[in-house]
């Protein structure tokens, strides 16, 4: 039986791992290869590297990091953050990434998903979605309307929408309904969805179960839940009630509160199929 996956996420800036609550109080915590090896030893199932570098120079550094990681670890890893077009995808895959995750660029130009999937295979194209709850099922802001010229037509939020897609690191509302957009991404050739709850990210209050379940049940491709992990029980919930195929977490692993192996042991004893050897 297919195992549920546990995926630590590392933020990388200018070629170095930075930890802390995302975008706040970043501390240099070292070498990406060392982190990757440590997580491999803990039996992490995959890794995600999120490049939070803004500069062009920094982006070239990321390709170098990817090459080093690929030489040193023997497990799948995804690279995301700031991927703007097909050339970025090509460079990172060629450097040795197994998958790339595309967020803003996919919303702005959904054909990037189909083009990348056609050229490199669906399995390596992860579409990352930052989701935020709408209030009472209605958008209070009007930004969505301004973004209607985005080519992601037919996915707009409706009065029934419970979550809206945000881009630019969560700063810009798109007017897109999360479930509809996820379905469209699947249709265009995404191999997987990385679904982050903006409401719960960084809170340690647990994953957004309703969001994860709504997206996962609507799709045929795997869904990685992200945002909110703080306790072992949160992982159990997101697999059992949220129907997630994988769960991503950052801070609880980085600060050593829990090990991947520890979480897996707990999940296994609670009837979740995970890889322990």
């Amino acid at each position: 039986m297919l195992c549920k996956r546990i995926i630590p996420c590392l933020d990388v800036k200018d070629g170095r791992v930075v930890k802390g609550v995302r975008f706040l109080k970043l501390k240099d915590a070292g070498d990406p290869v060392e982190w990757a090896k440590a997580y491999e030893a803990q039996k992490a199932d995959e890794l995600v590297f999120l490049d939070i570098t803004a500069s062009y120079e920094g982006r070239k550094t990321m390709a170098r990091v990817v090459r080093e990681v690929a030489k040193n670890i023997f497990m799948p890893f995804t690279v995301g953050g700031g991927i703007a077009g097909i050339e970025d995808v090509r460079v990172l895959l060629k450097a040795g990434a197994d998958k790339v995750s595309i967020n803003t660029a996919a919303v702005k130009d959904p054909h990037l998903i189909s083009e990348a999937a056609r050229r490199f295979g669906n399995q390596c194209i992860v579409v990352a979605i930052d989701a935020k709850r709408t209030e009472d099922g209605r958008r209070k802001t009007e930004d969505g309307k301004n973004n209607r010229n985005l080519s992601s037509a037919l996915c707009h939020v409706t009065p029934e929408s419970k979550w809206e897609v945000y881009i630019h690191g969560g700063r810009t509302a798109t007017g897109l309904d999360v479930v509809a957009w996820a379905k469209k991404a699947q249709r265009l050739g995404a191999g997987e969805i990385l679904l982050t709850s903006m409401d719960l990210d960084g809170t340690k209050d647990g994953y957004d179960i309703a969001l994860t379940a709504a997206v996962s049940k609507s799709l045929k491709i795997p869904v990685i839940a992200s945002g909110g992990a703080g306790l072992k029980a949160h992982f159990l919930d997101v697999f059992k009630k949220g129907h997630a195929d994988a769960a991503l977490a950052a801070s609880i692993f980085h600060y050593g509160e829990f090990t991947v192996a520890g979480i897996k042991k707990y999940l296994k004893s609670n009837g979740v199929n995970v890889r322990t050897s």
Partner: peptide
Amino acid sequence: KCPHMGWNAIEARSRAGSIFKNIKSPFF
């Protein structure tokens, strides 16, 4: 769900030979 993506167990069939040397079945 498709692709079948992630870790799964492989059970070696009994006639299996040298490719499985030092590998205990099932393995992931």
